[in-house]
Amino acid sequence: MRSLTGPELAALLSDAGGPPDVTLDPEAFMSTPFADLGYDSLAVLETLTLVQARWGVSLPDDVVAAATNPADLLVVLNRELVA
């Protein structure tokens, strides 16, 4: 299964929860907490739904529960996608 890139995740977050509240370079974006980007827990859960729809996979909801920023989320999603 192909892994997810940082820019792809940023685009999915934007589709799920709208553009981020702050404009950041890609690296800073990945390490900024979801709350500061303007994404609540539902936006993160919706991002998981979009990943499942576009990758055609089923992932458990709780994989995203511990992720606090995009970098964390990318790690847990890729752990599932390449598993």
């Binding site: 539902l42 919706e46 739904t49 499942q52 729809a53 996979v57």
Partner: peptide, 12 residues
């Protein structure tokens, strides 16, 4: 059509 994993979280 696709199963529960593709239903939007916002459907809640």
């Amino acid at each position: 059509g696709h199963g529960p994993h593709q239903v939007s979280a916002y459907q809640s």
